[in-house]
Simulated scan of single mutants.
Amino acid sequence: MRTGTHLLAIMAGIAAPVALTFWTTSSAGPRSAAHYAAVEQRALGTREVIEAFEKMGIDERKPKEAVLAYFSPDVIDHDPNVAGDRQSIIDYLDKRDWSSGVPRRTIRNIIVEGELGVVHHHIVRKPGEKGIAAVDIFRVRDGKVIEHWDVLQPVPEESANRHGMF
């Protein structure tokens, strides 16, 4: 009897932690991938959210995924080319031909103060063009972009300014 009890205790001692580990790390458990993604998202600050959005949306050519990951469902966008909500941003970006290697973007400056972040960059939307000088302004709260503005200025063929736009 003692051997059977000891064996049962040993088996239970091994099985219980294994079962608990499988449950806590499963898709339904408290340590699921969704849980960790939400915790990681909340932990991102203004600069990290902006950089992650720029990397995924432009560098990795996944604008829809980037907007869904980093923009609040209630985002307010002030770009005159969109209706001003998250879906209109996605629709606008989906119309771009991302397979051609453009738009190509070079970030010149990122400035962050609290929940506001500014990205100053050079964007070339079509090969052979001079492109545009762009400033995107993001308001980030709780790991999500909640508001966005942009200011765009075409890079002229010739400039009187000896320093150039960048």
Rank of each mutant, 00 (worst) to 15 (best):
residue 38 A to I: 11
residue 38 A to T: 13
residue 41 Q to F: 05
residue 42 R to V: 04
residue 43 A to R: 11
residue 44 L to I: 04
residue 44 L to G: 01
residue 44 L to T: 01
residue 44 L to Y: 14
residue 45 G to V: 06
residue 48 E to F: 07
residue 48 E to L: 07
residue 48 E to D: 13
residue 49 V to S: 06
residue 49 V to W: 10
residue 50 I to Y: 14
residue 51 E to Y: 09
residue 51 E to H: 04
residue 51 E to N: 12
residue 52 A to F: 10
residue 52 A to M: 04
residue 54 E to V: 11
residue 55 K to M: 13
residue 56 M to I: 14
residue 57 G to V: 11
residue 59 D to R: 14
residue 60 E to S: 14
residue 61 R to H: 11
residue 61 R to Y: 12
residue 61 R to L: 05
residue 62 K to N: 06
residue 62 K to F: 09
residue 62 K to P: 03
residue 63 P to D: 11
residue 63 P to C: 04
residue 64 K to D: 14
residue 64 K to N: 08
residue 65 E to F: 03
residue 66 A to Q: 11
residue 67 V to H: 05
residue 67 V to T: 13
residue 69 A to W: 13
residue 72 S to P: 01
residue 73 P to Y: 06
residue 73 P to M: 04
residue 73 P to I: 11
residue 74 D to W: 08
residue 75 V to C: 03
residue 75 V to H: 07
residue 76 I to K: 15
residue 77 D to C: 09
residue 78 H to M: 03
residue 80 P to D: 07
residue 81 N to D: 10
residue 81 N to V: 01
residue 81 N to I: 00
residue 81 N to C: 00
residue 82 V to Q: 06
residue 83 A to N: 02
residue 84 G to V: 02
residue 85 D to R: 05
residue 86 R to D: 07
residue 86 R to Q: 11
residue 87 Q to M: 10
residue 89 I to Q: 02
residue 90 I to S: 06
residue 91 D to P: 00
residue 92 Y to E: 01
residue 92 Y to A: 08
residue 92 Y to V: 00
residue 94 D to P: 00
residue 95 K to T: 03
residue 95 K to R: 12
residue 95 K to N: 12
residue 96 R to W: 15
residue 96 R to P: 00
residue 97 D to Y: 04
residue 98 W to V: 09
residue 98 W to L: 12
residue 98 W to I: 06
residue 99 S to H: 06
residue 99 S to K: 05
residue 100 S to L: 11
residue 100 S to K: 15
residue 101 G to V: 08
residue 101 G to E: 10
residue 101 G to C: 05
residue 102 V to Q: 12
residue 103 P to F: 04
residue 104 R to E: 15
residue 104 R to Q: 13
residue 104 R to S: 12
residue 105 R to C: 10
residue 105 R to H: 03
residue 105 R to W: 01
residue 107 I to L: 07
residue 107 I to M: 12
residue 108 R to Q: 05
residue 109 N to V: 07
residue 110 I to C: 03
residue 110 I to G: 01
residue 111 I to H: 09
residue 113 E to R: 05
residue 114 G to W: 04
residue 114 G to M: 02
residue 115 E to S: 12
residue 118 V to C: 01
residue 121 H to S: 14
residue 122 H to Y: 03
residue 122 H to A: 02
residue 123 I to N: 11
residue 123 I to S: 13
residue 123 I to P: 00
residue 123 I to M: 15
residue 127 P to A: 13
residue 128 G to P: 01
residue 129 E to Q: 03
residue 129 E to N: 06
residue 130 K to C: 00
residue 135 V to D: 01
residue 136 D to K: 04
residue 137 I to T: 12
residue 140 V to S: 07
residue 140 V to T: 08
residue 141 R to L: 09
residue 144 K to S: 11
residue 144 K to C: 09
residue 145 V to S: 09
residue 146 I to M: 14
residue 146 I to H: 10
residue 146 I to Q: 13
residue 147 E to H: 13
residue 147 E to Q: 13
residue 148 H to F: 10
residue 149 W to E: 08
residue 152 L to W: 10
residue 152 L to N: 01
residue 153 Q to H: 04
residue 153 Q to V: 07
residue 153 Q to K: 13
residue 154 P to M: 09
residue 154 P to A: 08
residue 154 P to C: 05
residue 155 V to G: 01
residue 157 E to R: 10
residue 157 E to P: 00
residue 157 E to K: 12
residue 158 E to T: 12
residue 160 A to F: 14
residue 161 N to T: 09
residue 161 N to F: 09
